[in-house]
């Protein structure tokens, strides 16, 4: 089984557009949306949910106001500034990281742990196959753990179906959800754009995949917006011995397809042709 993750470092370079296009091209696969923070792939793939589960992870502190004598020991012990004393101790749940130190230190046992219900994940069907997707609740912090759960579930689905591929829409950045989504993948496809920010961020995400020894290849989206910086990206790819799989032209049909809630692969357009060519090369890259 081959696992492809689409990443970018910088947000808004076109990850989800390309995943939706590959979804239409790739046979025999299961998909996952690992951008659990601001997931968008469902807007294009219109998943029909088969099953939904709550995501429970870690704990939050909870104060029994009758038992609290407002001594302030918890306030001093909390390193996350999650406690204030207003008549009794009060927990700022958005700041609480669930370390439990306040529970331990409270002399009147007024603080206890409550299970943290912080998101939902789903197994759904789309016209391009099955997908596992999730939504972390607003302001929560366990995105890496939810991503790991999504990945575990998508692998289960893929094994059950004896699928040939897993296709993953990755989160932006290089932090915890990205690290969680990279783990155990076969190949990362970096989507970049010909801007100074795009190139800068590409270098950082490439550094991250190198850190975890995951091979990567690159495609440049809207390459004709700035041919000079596209050229710099090509040079950088050559220097890094990174496989540049293709360049996608700026194509107004891309936004139109998004607005229509469709994969760009369903249109006859320059961007769609370029992504088909990238898919051909990806198959070769998997063989290497």
């Amino acid at each position: 089984m081959k696992e492809l993750i689409v990443l970018s470092g910088k947000g808004g370079t076109g990850k989800t557009t390309i995943v939706a296009a590959l979804a239409a091209l790739m046979p025999d696969k299961v998909m996952a949306d690992c951008d659990v923070d601001a997931a968008d792939l469902h807007l294009v793939l219109n998943p029909q949910i088969r099953e939904s589960h709550r995501f429970l992870s870690g704990i939050k502190a909870k104060v029994d106001e009758d038992a609290c004598n407002s001594c302030g020991k918890c306030l001093k012990a909390c390193h996350f500034k999650a406690i204030r004393i207003k008549r009794t101790a009060r927990i700022d749940e958005l700041a609480c990281e669930g370390c439990g130190v306040c529970i331990h230190i409270c002399p009147t046992k007024a603080i206890s742990a409550k299970e943290n219900d912080c998101g939902a994940w789903h197994i759904s069907d789309t016209s391009y196959g099955r997908i596992v997707h999730a939504q972390l609740d607003i302001g929560e912090e366990n995105s890496g753990k939810l991503v790991s759960l999504v990945k575990m579930q998508v692998r289960k689905q893929a094994e059950a179906q004896k699928a040939r591929y897993i296709l993953i829409d990755g989160p932006p950045g290089i932090g915890c959800p990205v690290i969680a989504s990279l783990s155990g993948t076969t190949l990362a496809l970096m989507v970049t754009e010909p801007t100074m920010s795009g190139l800068h961020d590409l270098k950082r995400i490439a550094g991250l995949t190198a850190h975890f020894k995951i091979p990567f290849c690159v495609c440049i989206n809207k390459y004709d917006l700035n041919p000079e910086i596209s050229g710099q990206i090509e040079t950088w790819c050559r220097e890094q011995h990174a496989n540049l799989l293709g360049k996608i032209p700026f194509d107004p049909l891309v936004v139109e397809s998004l607005v229509a809630g469709k994969s760009i692969s369903e249109y006859d357009s320059p961007a769609s042709d370029a992504i088909s060519a990238i898919w051909q090369k990806l198959q070769l890259a998997f063989k290497e």
Binding site: D37, A38, L94, A95, L136, I138, E141, S143, G173
Partner: peptide, 13 residues
């Protein structure tokens, strides 16, 4: 940073 989770809270709070 983008998103709606803890890094955004740390930055905007």
């Amino acid at each position: 940073p983008p998103g709606t989770s803890c890094p955004v809270i740390a930055a905007t709070k």
